[in-house]
Every structure is written in C-alpha cells, then in structure tokens.
C-alpha cells in the first residue's frame, strides 16, 4: 500500500504528463465503481495497460473509488433500475438484449449498468478536475508544503525511503 502511495506521489512529482495521471484517476473511478470481473472492466484495464496511463495513479484511484462505491451502492442501483425500466428505453434494451455482448457484460443488471453509466458520466468532470488539481499541486502546493517541519520529518520516515526508492527506479 505504501509502495502504491509512493508511486502516486512520485507520479505527481515526476515529469509524467498531468493528463496521464488524470486519465488514470478517471479510469480508476469507472473500474472502482463496477464489480471487478465485468466485461467493461477488463476492457478498461486493457486500456490502462495498453495506453500510456499512469498505472500507480490508476491502482490507487481504483482502490479509493472501490471503497467509495460501497457508499454509492443505492445510488448506482437506482440509476441502473431507472434506466433499465424506463418505458422509452425499452425498444433500445430489447434490441441490445438480443446481443450476446450486452448480456455477457451483464449490462441488464441494474448495478452493473448503473455503475458503468454513472462512472462514464462522472469520469469526464473528474478527469478535468484532476487535471486542474495536479497542475495546482505541482505549481504551488508542493513548494508550499515542503517548507513545513512535518514534511521534513516525513522525509526522514520509512515511507519517504520507499518513495525515494521508487522514485529512483522511475516510472513503470
């Protein structure tokens, strides 16, 4: 866990593209909301590995949003339920239901569809918000925090040693 956090901080402090980290957080959010072994999650993991997305950031975001998803369960189920039972969308879902891919993705399950839709919709603003926050962090917050004695004390800690070690290896 400490290694993962160290990787995230390393990414934040490294020369990695802000967009790479923001995309990792946004994809981590989508994957974190959904049940682990779903077809679209495998697709998104493939995307994370195939594209130059920050893996450390993705894993941390995934873990964080997985925990958050338990608090959002009822909202996710409600979204899925309202979509799958909406009269106007019945012809669309009837047509999709004939496709094996749709059923294989369990998109006729209220939680799975709700998590995918909610994840995809909120991933876009989350991407831009992350972008904005990382830029601010790199510009102001990092320098601001490094002045504090506590940060200096932290630099003497085990966590910082791991961080330095990771940092020395560079990005995965």
């Amino acid at each position: 866990m400490l290694t993962l956090l160290a990787k995230l901080f390393n990414a934040l402090n490294s020369e990695s593209s802000t967009r790479q980290i923001s995309l990792a957080i946004a994809l981590g959010f989508i994957v974190g909301l959904s049940p682990l072994l779903t077809l679209h999650n495998i697709f998104f993991i493939f995307v994370v590995l195939f594209l130059r997305v920050n893996i450390g950031g993705f894993i941390v975001a995934w873990g964080f949003f997985k925990g958050l998803s338990y608090l959002l369960t009822s909202l996710i189920v409600t979204v899925g339920e309202s979509l799958l039972t909406a009269e106007s969308l019945q012809p669309l879902f009837d047509a999709l239901y004939q496709s094996s891919l749709f059923k294989l993705g369990h998109l006729h399950h209220t939680y799975t569809l709700g998590a995918l839709v909610l994840g995809c919709l909120l991933a876009v603003p989350l991407y831009y918000l992350s972008n904005f926050l990382i830029e601010k962090y790199r510009l102001h917050i990092k320098a601001f925090f490094e002045k504090f004695r506590i940060v200096k004390a932290l630099k003497a800690s085990k966590f910082y040693r791991i961080y330095s070690h990771v940092s020395g290896q560079g990005e995965l």
């Binding site: 009822s74 019945q90 004939q98 006729h108 939680y111």
Partner: peptide, 16 residues
Amino acid sequence: APVASDQGRYVQFNDE
C-alpha cells in the same frame, strides 16, 4: 419490491 434489492437485479427483456 425489485428496487429494494441492495445489490441490484437482472432485468429480463424479450428474448428470442
């Protein structure tokens, strides 16, 4: 009470 399910449910559509 299908909505009351905590973990969601499968909604069945007309199948061939």
